[in-house]
Design a binder for these strands. Sequence first.
DNA 1: CTGTTAGCGCATTCAG
DNA 2: CTGAATGCGCTAACAG
Lengths: 293, 293
Amino acid sequence: MKAAGELGYRPNALAQGLISRRTHLVAVIMSSLTMLHYPEVLAELSHRLTERDLRMLLFSLEAESDVDGVLEQVWRHSVDGVICAAHLTDSQVEQFIAHRVPLVLYNRLSGRAPATSVACDSVAGQRELVERLLAAGHRRFAVVAGPADSYVGEERRRAALARLGEAGIATVPERRGDFSYASGGEAMIALMAEAKQLDAVVCVNDLMAIGAIDAARERFGLRIPDDLSVVGFDGTDPAGWNSYRLCSIRQPVRRMTQAAVDMLLERVEDARIPPERRLFSGQFMEGQSARLA
Amino acid sequence: MKAAGELGYRPNALAQGLISRRTHLVAVIMSSLTMLHYPEVLAELSHRLTERDLRMLLFSLEAESDVDGVLEQVWRHSVDGVICAAHLTDSQVEQFIAHRVPLVLYNRLSGRAPATSVACDSVAGQRELVERLLAAGHRRFAVVAGPADSYVGEERRRAALARLGEAGIATVPERRGDFSYASGGEAMIALMAEAKQLDAVVCVNDLMAIGAIDAARERFGLRIPDDLSVVGFDGTDPAGWNSYRLCSIRQPVRRMTQAAVDMLLERVEDARIPPERRLFSGQFMEGQSARLA
DNA sequence: CTGTTAGCGCATTCAG
DNA sequence: CTGAATGCGCTAACAG
């Protein structure tokens, strides 16, 4: 043992993994890495994994259709588990059970197939945002939604529309973006063309809200929040920049990633632990992009 | 073979790697994942690696001192090669040679120990920025530098000061930040306190430039670029946002990551290929944050 | 060309 | 408690 250390011996992780059936590898699957909120998630995940003596095998998807290719690699590398922040079909979720690879879904729930997941409560967060806007007297709303196939995007959109419906506001102009800055601006411009007058624009993520604000200011000379309120979602760094001071819901990324890693590791150590869903509340950030009184 | 495919057989990557000595694993080492420029690099790297049938083992550093721990893991996992965007000491670079693991440095050069690297030409880029500012008549400059131990940060800082020196401008107030938005704002405030009057602030990255602009506007009511010119470096997404339209140098991330992967793979396939340095020119982005005429 | 065997570097078992 | 044998799943070299 001492001689080993002295001459710089390192156990070979491949051989160890091959025989012990524990590779200390966790695959992380993410859709769009550049989507502003994900870098923070990734950084936190990386640290939480390292703390637990796990290594991260990162897969990012150019198109959602690449998932099968990624899963192929995942099986071959006999990872200890997978954290997935991309859309999985029921059949894909079932493959994890078949391959006996523990899975934790990040910020999304599974469909029919039950799976362990950790998520930020989009519904509660989105309702709170709308609620506050309503309380401040806003009546003419518009929504900038995400792609129809985005889980969180749709959840937030529906939550916003539902809460507006409860307040008797049934017709709400909508536009879909792709979560990007540019699409937020385009949505804003389209909405302004459609609706003569707007009080508040609800965007399902911060980046589109930022794009919307920039477009509202530049194209229409609107003052935020005096002429128009804009709210976002996620609580990313740029949301806090002076130029925006976005009213948003901050996801507790630290605790969520911690939970994801903990839940995954539990199931690595005991595969019989049943699926579990953990929902975290987001924190309301008042900012200055919405008139709230 | 057909029966194999039918019953869903997958070759075990561990066993393959153990015997063939090719794991198709590439370790990517990055310092601060949240540093705005890196998510883009990471996304590109991921795609370029996937194209070449390689998987990414991602290590992010909380502190630069973690490097040794990371390298330990790297050796154990017998990766095919490493792409490193974090600071390495000469002794660490030499360990790669000893372990016969090909290494490509990203946006940094090695010290004494020769290593393959790909980088964006900071000196040329920074000189171009300063040059244009000088040509437009700016004389009273300030510099917002990065941490003293950052390779690119120092390179850009020295390039800016050198070019200013050539123009006969010897005394330039300086502040160091940590590349973050907040530190850019703080540096701006400190510089305004020190210098009575400023024409241009040269920031060594976009994020600090954005922070500086926000602080200049909010704390001092300055109009950019009428009252003050601010330039950044990197050409990240937020630099292009309407609120900033930063004058900056865009790094050709796509080509740089492509080159990094290509150069690495060459050396995986033939370990005798000698070290090589590839320097890419950044592209000047005029933006609207600097008065250039 | 198909079928067998050795061994990659370990952990785990068993005998001594 | 120390030491030798077995096999994880594969590839490569070998024999039939």
